[in-house]
Structures are given as structure tokens and as C-alpha cells.
Design a protein around this nucleic acid. Structure first.
Lengths: 195, 195
DNA sequence: GTCTATACTACGATAGAC
DNA sequence: GTCTATCGTAGTATAGAC
């Protein structure tokens, strides 16, 4: 449980919020600790009381993630195979993303290389679980043509694509989420459909 | 015409190739001039004979782009309005991308913020033409709901999404292009289809 | 928990010889 | 056109007082 009684106690979390926002707007490499500290109203050196390094700030942003992917994987493996299982799983995944959870996606689409190269405290790539889900879904395909593989992965990444597509447009988060859902359905349909 | 008689004459172009590759793999900010120079087998300072700055290298990569977007815009504006015009235009755009032209897309998806903030020698954002195309296509929509706007933009960015989806998978460029085409068709269909 | 002060490094960039 | 040498800056990070 988080103690918010004393203002100073929340510095770590405020730093995470500020860092996430700046990393998303400007990029991880283009954001300096000085900038984060300034926005927090503290000294640059003080950040090191809360985080061991800049990368530690970054990694901390991935620490408290939910177990959605793992849960979905477990669910998927328990399901009987069937022609609708691919679509069901993809939509379950896409519908995980409510408007509040778009911040993480925005960070990822803004810093793809950073995320790709990032490992958590256990040394596991942070993108590994989603990769695993993708592989499992590809295995459901009747024929494993390369086009199909790409389409499956595109379907999974519909939310990312929607966020990116909306980046330059003035649309609500709700519209982004709704568009992502429809896109995922259309893409899954294309996989199953004629070619 | 490019003189390739003397080895040294090609240094500028070799530098562009090396820079494009490194920027794509590691990101623009994470790539130093020293690294580019090393890969070229020349001194860091020598790069400044060919380019005025690191950003000049970056901008040079966008200099010799074709006029595909502008041409497509011209074509679009000459067409009679019709229910198939949106689909036709999107597919014309997506089919612009052959396997050789994926390198630019890979760079863009790896460095979205860099591209977004980049202006050419005339001060125009390099992404402006595509933005214009998107706006024009959105104007074709019978109802301009925000979801539809996102879906149109997703359709245009199908190649980008396909490249990103394939980034971690072992698929051929041909499969990426083919998947992008099918995705674009599916997304356009979703726009026109029932909701 | 925050500060000042500082170390160390790497970067982009320039000057000038060859 | 490439080199050596160097400049100035900004970055991450650390030491130690308060």
C-alpha cells in the first residue's frame, strides 16, 4: 500500500509519472535526468536517492505491470482448439486496453527500440510474454504462410497501430480503443477469409 | 549521375547507407558520428566534409524521396467522388511499397519521434504530405466519426504496421508487403462495412 | 530526502596541417 | 578528402554536507 500522507513520500511515483510523460513525448534518449528533476522541482542528484540509474527509472515503469498476457496465455492453453479460438484470443487481448492503459502503449510506440532492448530485473525481455502469445496464436493457423504470420501479429498489435495512427490526429482515447477493436476483428477476418 | 569511378567519391552515399542502417538498428540518438565513421573506415572529423552536422545526415536521407505522395494527391483530386475512391487510393498508396522501399519504413517505425520532429531544407515537416493525404481521405468519409478517422489512418499506415509486426519475426520482405496489402483492404472494408 | 559540488565520459563540432 | 588535435557542452553518476 502506498503512503501518500507525506508529500515527499510520493516523489518516486511522481518521478515515474513525469518520466513516462517525457519519455513518451521526447523519447528516452532525448530526455535528461535534469529535465525530469526540474519538472519535479528537485535537484538532479536527488533522483539517485530513488533510482540507481536512468535505466532503473525506465525499468521501474515496467515493474508493476499486470499479468494480463500470462493470464491470457494460460486461458488459451486450456481452451479446446477450434476455428474461432484465434479471433477470441486476439479480441480478448485487444479489449484488455482501456483508455487508462494507453499510456504504456504510447510509450512503446514512441520508443520501440528501447522497449525491444529492455530486460527486467530477472533478465527477461519485457516484450517476451507478448512474443510468446503471438507464437502460440501463429501455431493455431491451419496453414502457416508468412503473410498469415504477419497478419496475426498485426492483429495483436492493433492497439499499437491505432495509437500510432491517431498520434497526429485529434481524436479521443475512446475512439482509439474502439478503432483498435474493429481493426483487430477485420484483420482476423482477413486471416480466416479468402486470399 | 553518380560518379563511382573513384572510390572516395562515393563516401557521402556510403555514409548515408551506413547511417540509415545504424539509425534503424540502434536509433538516431543512440548512434554516434564516431560509430558511423568507424564503419566507413574514416575519421569522425572527415564526416564533416560531407555533411554539416549529424542532423544534416538525417535530413539527407529524406532528400531524394520520390514524389509518390504528391502524385497520388494530385490523382485523387482529379478523380470523381465515388464509393470506391477511398479504397482505390489507399491501395494505390500501399502498393507503392515494394520490398526495396521498406528500408525507409523501417527507419520511420524505429524512430517515430525523430521523423515527426524533422523538417526538410524548406522547413516543411517531412511527414506533412502523408498527413495531407490522410486528411483528404478522411474528407471522403460519409460520416466523420473519430473511429473512422483512426481506421482510415491505420489503413494508410498498413505498411508501417506490417513492418513493425514483422520486426521480431522471421519473415521475408515480400510477405510483409503482401500482408500490408491485405491488411489495408481489410481495414478499408471495415470502414465501409457495418458497425 | 534534498542539496552543492564535482568527477568522468562521450558527444557534436571546429581549426588547421597534409 | 582525410587526418590529428582540441574545444565546449551536456550527459550520467558519485561524494559528502545538511
Amino acid at each position: 500500500m502506498i503512503d501518500t500522507t507525506h508529500r515527499s513520500t510520493g516523489t518516486r511515483q511522481r518521478a515515474q509519472q513525469v518520466a513516462l510523460a517525457l519519455f513518451t513525448e521526447q523519447g528516452y534518449e532525448s530526455t535528461s535526468l535534469r529535465q525530469i528533476a526540474d519538472e519535479l522541482g528537485i535537484n538532479k542528484a536527488s533522483l539517485y536517492h530513488h533510482f540507481a540509474s536512468k535505466e532503473a527509472i525506465l525499468r521501474s515503469l515496467f515493474e508493476d505491470r499486470g499479468t494480463e498476457v500470462a493470464d491470457l496465455l494460460t486461458w488459451l492453453r486450456e481452451q479446446p482448439r477450434g476455428p474461432r479460438l484465434l479471433e477470441q484470443t486476439v479480441l480478448r487481448w485487444v479489449d484488455t486496453f482501456t483508455t487508462e492503459k494507453l499510456a504504456g502503449i504510447r510509450f512503446t510506440t514512441a520508443n520501440p527500440l528501447v522497449v525491444r532492448g529492455l530486460a527486467d530485473a530477472s533478465g527477461d525481455r519485457v516484450g517476451a510474454p507478448l512474443q510468446e502469445l503471438a507464437d502460440e496464436l501463429v501455431a493455431l493457423l491451419p496453414d502457416g504462410g508468412q503473410e498469415q504470420v504477419v497478419l496475426v501479429r498485426m492483429a495483436i498489435l492493433s492497439v499499437n497501430a491505432a495509437v500510432q495512427a491517431a498520434a497526429q490526429a485529434d481524436v479521443s482515447d475512446a475512439a482509439v480503443v474502439a478503432a483498435a477493436h474493429r481493426a483487430a476483428r477485420a484483420l482476423v477476418g482477413e486471416i480466416g477469409g479468402a486470399r
